[in-house]
Amino acid sequence: MGLLSKKDAKLITDPLADNNPITIQVLGICSALAITAELKASIVMALSVMAVLAIGNVVISLMRNIIPSKIRIIVQLVVVAALVIIVDQVLKAYAYELSKTLSVFVGLIITNCIIMGRFEAFALANGPWRSFLDGIGNSAGYGLILIIVGFFRELLGSGTLLGYKVFGDPIEQTGLYAYGYENNGFMLLSPMALIVVGIIIWVQRSRNESLIEEN
């Protein structure tokens, strides 16, 4: 890889697979439950978290030598909250439609444990460039799982993808519905997000047995 050194590239590829924040570290589960009933919401959330985590990581990394260790968690919280609110205000002023779609996620981004987790575990000990890559990598790993879960929940729960009717119209009884297919409404409820995440964890660990913890 020309652009990134091997060590830097690992910062991006690791969280996508063997050190995934959701399936391995089990962080950020709360938002994975809340917003994955639709694929579109999952994608929007993934991109928002990517922006906040990448910028936040850089800010924290630049401040890492002057942050007093006693109040570092509060400092991290203030940085992420300020970032999110400013972005929200700017969107409200210049991209009102988009901001309305995002408003639901603002609170969820601030409380996302992956963000605090990466600030604490990585940005406080590493330089800005590496922190930036770490932010991109971890949010991509998070987003990947979100999009997989959103894909299955919307497809099986509503029979649509990004609002497009994949299986036909359930009310008009066209397409698959003409043959007696029914949407599984249970997929839309949050417990199913956990079960889908569980299945992903299962698949991932059975393919890579080194991930299985010893008792």
Binding site: A34, I35, E38, A41, S103, V104, R153, G157, L188
Partner: peptide
């Protein structure tokens, strides 16, 4: 709505 759940209340 201000903050209903995407895919459900939204």
């Amino acid at each position: 709505h201000k903050g209903e759940t995407p895919g459900l209340g939204a």
